[in-house]
Amino acid sequence: MVNKNPIDGKHPIIRTVPLLLIVLPGIIFFISICLGRYEVCPKKVLSILTSGCLYPDINYSDIEEMVIINVRLPRVLLAMVVGSGLAVAGAAFQGLFGNPLVSPHILGVTSGAGFGAALGILISGHMGVVQFSAIAFGMTAVCLVYTISHFSNGSRLFVLVLSGIIVGALFTALISLVKLAADPDDKLPSIVFWLMGSLSGASYRDLILGASLILVGVIILLLLRWRMNILSLSEEEAQSLGINVQGLRLTVIATATLITASAVSLCGIIGWIGLIIPHVARMVVGPDHKNLLPACVPIGGFYLLLIDDMARAAMPMEIPLSILTALVGAPFFAYLLRKTGGGWK
C-alpha cells in the first residue's frame, strides 16, 4: 500500500523548502540594493523602491534615487536573471547528457560567445555590437558542434562532447588571437576584464534585450522539465518511452545555448554556477527535474547576487565574477560533497 505520496511529498520539511526558496532570495535582494559605496539607509531604499508609498515622510535626493533605481536595481535584477538562467541551463545540460559533471560550457558556447564578444570589443567597442556578436558566435559554436557530431554515427552524446571540446579549443585559440591583435593599452584590458565576467554597467537596456532572451529560454526549459527526466535515461530507454529523443535533445541544446550565450553577452564568462547550482538544488529537492529546474531558479539567482555583492563591496575595486564564483564555489562544493557524499549517487 502506498500511503504517502513520495512525489508530492507530504513531509513538512519538503513543504517549507519552496517557501524558503522564495523568501531567502527576497531578503538578499533587498540587502543587495542597500549595499554599496554610496550609502543609502534601508528605509530610504524602501521608500525609493515603492516611489514613496512606504515611508512617505522620508525625503531622498535625486542622486540617491538615481543610484538605487538606475544603478543598483538593474544590476541586482540582472544578477538574478543571469544566475537563474545559468543554473537552469546547467541542470538541463546535466540531464541531457545524463552526467552530473557537465556544465553549460560543455558544447563550446562560452568560448564561442567569448570570442564573439572579444571580436566585438576589438572592432567597435559599442555594447550593442559586442552583445550581438557574442550571441551570434555562441550559437555558431554550438551549430558547429552539432554538425561535426553528425559526421559520426557512433554514440551521439559521446561524439557531441568530443565535438564540444574541439570547437571550444578552436574558439579559445581565436580569443587568444584577438587578444594578440588588440591594443595593449586600451582594448586588451577591456577584453581581459570582460572575459572574466562583470555585472558593472548593467542597464535597463541590457535587461530588456539580453535578460528577456534568458527568461524565454528558462520558461521553455521549465515547461519541458518533466521530459528532462526521460531524456536523462539511456537513449534506448528514452526512445522506448515514446519520446522524440533527437527533437527534444535539439530543443534543449538550442534553448540552453540561447541562455548561456545571452548570459555571456551581458556580463562575460561566469563559470561554476551552471555546474554547482544544479548539485545544490539536487541536494535540496532531489533529482526529479520536475522539482529540480524550478529550484535552480531561486538558488542560481540568489547565488550570483551574493557573489556580485562581494564583487562590488569586498574591495575598493571590482573583483571579476569568475574569480569569486570559483573562490567561493570550489570550497563550498567540496564541503557539500563531504557532507552528502555527492547526493546524486
Binding site: I7, N229, S232, E237, S240, P287, D288
Partner: peptide
C-alpha cells in the same frame, strides 16, 4: 513496451518517479 539490457541509473530518481516515466506516451510534451 521495450526494456533494454543495460541500465545504469545516473540520477537516483525515486522508484515511483521512475515508474511514472512509463506514462510518457500519454503525456503531452509540455
Amino acid at each position: 513496451s521495450y526494456i533494454p539490457q543495460s541500465h545504469n541509473v545516473v540520477f537516483p530518481y525515486k522508484v515511483l518517479e521512475m515508474v511514472l516515466m512509463g506514462r510518457a506516451p500519454y503525456i503531452n510534451v509540455f
